[in-house]
Amino acid sequence: MEFPEEFKYTEDHEWVMVEEGLAVIGISDFAQDALGDVVFVELPEVGVVLEAGKAFGVVESVKAVSDIYAPIAGTVEEINDELVDAPEIINTSPYEDGWMIKIRMIDASAADNLMDAEAYQALIAEES
């Protein structure tokens, strides 16, 4: 299982990568593995304002469903349309092609408070 060093992580198993003032958000390799084959993703519309810690979408496998929480606050700038028709991308490429949304952060430094890869790996070692 991979956990890219340059990403930040949350206790709810989302990842965040900040690039050019936008936060790209997806779910971790651990999360996709725990869910199994992803069959459906529900994402917010562009322009929606997200509150940190609140659910913004849903990811489903055949027999499980999980809310996706916004790691940080911001406005949705872009969503990954490809996931709608090909949700399996989340399984095959959770950190690259499987990104979910890009948000314009309200506080540009908000991501700094999230876990780094090492802390996140320690957390999942504890959980499993």
Binding site: F40, E60, S61, V62, K63, A64, V65
Partner: peptide, 9 residues
């Protein structure tokens, strides 16, 4: 589409 249903959701 059982994720809509009570035994899962």
């Amino acid at each position: 589409l059982a994720t809509r249903e009570q035994h899962i959701r």
